[in-house]
Design a protein around this nucleic acid. Structure first.
Lengths: 340, 340
DNA sequence: ATGAAAGCGCTAACAC
DNA sequence: GTGTTAGCGCTTTCAT
């Protein structure tokens, strides 16, 4: 036993020796078994098992120039929305041989740019990024990158490379239209954080009301603070104080909607009789609330899973039929907005 | 330009050539600047900036045998509790030069063992694992591992290496004691998922009631299904059906507590007059509910952050004063349990 | 304080 | 099909 630098773990050379073949044949037997004769393959498999050999991913990356790391940039880790996306991502990654490297922009564009540069510099196998509001420089950079890129959470006609999401403007319009159909005319808006997707939901809200001459800026309550149930209470309280005759609330996410429901309870406003409420995302708790809260269901888990699916297909040079996938949304009508 | 295999990025050799020094001196100038003379250091820094050189982490790992990856094994990514832990982890990692590799056991012990083996085999710089219920084999393996290990979420006297958490048994006892002090005698328990920490909270609940001769198995409603607000409604509904005179509920987490509140609303049971409710974890929404819900505050973010802190200290061979940190908990009393 | 040579574990390129 | 050789980009060892 010479005193070498090694890790002590068996290497591909050990396996080759044990199987009586060259190292490269072991390498091939692992990556492209069909290129190795049946007999050698069996001897190699046996040696691998006996030595308990596991290839060193670092060395593979270095030698091949190909990494197995998929970079993922999300605006938040605590937000339920992205937690669901992450679950989808990890479920698809599992057993795929790829690894995920996550970064968190905290909703900062500058941070997103910085992290993107950082990741891209490490030659990832692919990148997943959130939203469609990257800077021109970043777009140009990623468009030229030699790894596939997928944008998630929104649908748009001009993906950098691939894209999977839905239209927040349309989803908001459908929610507000529903409130109108149930008889509301003085419909308020609650928004927090005011990231790009929140702004587009507000855009849909405004467009829908404007078309019917019902838009009134006094019925919008917003904050740049993070969204929370407490913010939902505060914002709806503020709105009720300023525009007391508001008869419905489109809440740009479910935390705010739940907060609005509690604020109505605290103020003795009946839901839906006095105030109808619609949320956004359809978190699990919406169905359990009393009254159950109407919300726009979005396919967060599927977005994460399919995004990784598309990336892996591209990494492995398979055809990806559609580069821009619209996953849509679904309005789930519950008691909080039902007056029929 | 010969057609080489390289990535096109500048390498340490390029920097060395530009600065007129040997490659190893560049390497040292980056990692231990104090070992390189001032003059060379400046020439090297200049060359690095001009070439826009970034060291290749894969190659560093391969050459040094030291990785910068900290493995993190959590039971869930969507559970708010772990989302907060992750936030703390990422906040401490940022700018530290270390990377996080996350895995998700979905509350399966077998999966935890499998992932641990997988990670440990990749020679991580350190490992963070959840809870204290690892198998004997795993404990023994980690105890001998040549990287630091931290267990989080629970406090216990016998850490594998380091540990940071709190006593779930004690926390549950305090919550139940509070309900007793507010006059409840027929106190029920709601639990879901039934992972080890949930079981210890139930243990605390039982112990506290038994001490006063108040324990009644008929007042426990549990499920192995994941916790959710809907489960909170279902379980509390079941409990009310089976033991109608139950006058308080200790809910082993906040989702269940919120569900219980909604179920009370649906059944016309007043909170806290007819039924007092206490949750666990003190998620943000507890304070916004109507009535606001009493809960046990736990320090999830700090746990994640401090755990990484301790690991990095150990990796960099600094002293870690305490190997077992008890972060405690705090009962936050609100209207849902106040009868005084 | 600095450098040359060797090697980390693996794979691309090119034989045979 | 299989092996040989020469790297991938960096750090260790050992010399100066």
């Amino acid at each position: 036993m010479s005193q070498r630098r090694g890790s002590g773990r068996p290497t591909i050379a050990d396996v080759a020796r044990a199987a009586g073949v060259g190292a490269i044949t072991v390498s091939r037997a692992i990556r492209r078994p069909e290129q190795v004769s049946r007999e050698l393959r069996e001897r190699i498999d046996l040696a691998i098992r006996e030595l308990n050999y596991v290839p060193d991913p670092q060395a593979q990356v270095l030698a091949s120039g190909r990494s197995n790391v998929i970079g993922v940039i999300l605006p938040s880790l605590t937000n339920n929305v992205y937690a669901d996306v992450m679950q989808g991502i990890y479920d698809r990654i599992e057993g795929s041989g790829f690894q995920i490297q996550i970064a968190n922009t905290r909703y900062s564009e500058d941070e997103e740019d910085r992290l993107l540069q950082l990741f891209a510099g490490q030659r990832p196998a692919a990148m997943l990024i959130t939203g469609i509001d990257q800077s021109d420089a970043t777009r140009a950079y990623l468009a030229k990158a030699d790894f596939p890129v997928v944008q998630i959470m929104e649908h748009a006609p001009d993906p950098i490379d691939m894209l999977i999401g839905f239209s927040h403007v349309e989803a908001a319009r459908v929610a507000v239209r529903h409130l109108m159909e149930e008889g509301s005319r003085r419909i308020g808006f609650l928004g927090a954080r005011m990231d790009p997707r929140m702004l587009r939901r507000r855009e849909g809200y405004r467009a829908q009301l404007r078309e019917h001459g019902l838009y009134d800026p006094a019925r919008e309550a917003m904050t740049s603070a993070p969204s929370s149930v407490s913010q939902g209470r505060a914002l709806s309280g503020r709105l009720f104080d300023a525009a007391s005759d508001t008869d419905a609330l489109f809440c740009a996410n479910d935390d705010l909607a739940l907060g609005a429901l509690f604020e109505c309870m605290a103020r003795g406003r009946r839901v839906p009789e006095d105030v109808a409420i619609v949320g956004f995302n359809d978190l699990e708790m919406m169905a359990a609330a009393v009254p159950a809260i109407t919300s726009v269901q979005t396919h967060r888990y599927r977005m994460g899973k399919m995004a990784i699916d598309m990336l892996i297909d591209r990494i492995e040079e398979r055809e990806v039929p559609e580069r821009g996938v619209d996953l849509g949304f679904q309005l789930i009508v519950r008691e909080s907005s039902r007056r029929g």
